[in-house]
Design a protein around this nucleic acid. Structure first.
Length: 253
DNA sequence: TCCCAGGCATCTG
DNA sequence: CAGATGCATGGG
């Protein structure tokens, strides 16, 4: 069981921050969270956030919830004199950048393009169907009818092509090289462009300097920075600043 | 009915 | 290189 100061681990904010499109389900006490073949319960107890898993797998979940990172320190290192960022950091305090499963993240954000969040989540649920955990490429190729009926629109071919290419090489996705190499390998996949690649790098591979620029972030630049790119975009923790800014802007759209 | 959604691939100049 | 366009689908 993990016990975290809830000030820096707010379950609702994490669930609604747009980084996680699969695996979080609301319950009476809080959430159940699945990742790969693992599951935990997450809820509050006093001023603490509790992560409780059966069987015991605290190391996995400690990494998933990114407990090795000091978010108070990230806040302190934010560029000064930026009122919008300061407000976003206050509003989003409690968000953490999860270490999500790479495959789940890749599929989630391929599905996310030119799509809305409820539809994305619905499609991912349909891909999982009655399976216990999110299907790997082998399972998806076995269950092609799911891909056809998941409401994926034109994105279905991106997923089929990726699964078939992995099957041909008989290997799962992994990006062991540096950031630049991973970015090139990701954007070489049909259906993955700069924005989706940055989401995968940030949410699946935990490159905190990556800053996905989507329609909301463009709105932020336009509405709060006179159309210019703010300083925080090019800092080592840009991914976190992007996430709280996204959450802040989208909440008060 | 039109417009949009955590964009991308493709084509054109 | 930058800019324009089509894309599947469901919700507002």
């Amino acid at each position: 069981m993990l016990k975290i100061d809830s000030k820096y681990c707010n379950l609702e904010k994490i669930a609604d921050s747009g980084q996680v499109l699969y695996g979080w389900n609301k319950t009476e006490e809080g959430y159940t969270v699945t990742s790969r073949d693992k599951i935990c319960r997450a809820y509050y107890q006093g001023d603490s956030t509790i992560i409780d898993c059966q069987p015991l797998d605290d190391d996995y979940w400690a990494h998933y919830f990114d407990l090795e990172t000091d978010y108070e320190e990230i806040e302190k290192s934010a560029p000064v004199g930026d009122d919008f960022l300061k407000d976003a950091l206050d509003f989003g305090r409690g968000i953490r950048i999860l270490n999500q499963d790479l495959w789940e993240t890749v599929i989630s954000f391929i599905v996310s393009q030119n799509n809305n969040i409820p539809r994305i989540q619905n499609s991912l649920k349909k891909l999982k169907a009655e399976d216990k955990f999110f299907p790997d490429y082998i399972r998806l190729l076995e269950k092609r009818e799911r891909i056809a009926t998941a409401g994926l629109g034109y994105r279905d071919n991106y997923i089929i092509k990726l699964c078939e290419e992995l099957a041909e090489k008989s290997r799962t996705l992994n990006f062991s090289g540096d950031l630049e190499t991973a970015y090139k390998e990701l954007t070489a996949i049909t259906g993955i462009g700069p924005k989706v690649a940055n989401c995968i790098l940030l949410f699946g591979l935990h490159h905190m300097e990556c800053c996905p620029v989507d329609t909301w972030v463009k709105k932020i630049f336009a509405n709060h920075y006179e159309g210019k790119v703010p300083e925080w975009v090019k800092t080592p923790n840009a991914g976190y600043y992007q996430q709280v800014a996204f959450y802040y802007e989208r909440t008060f759209k």
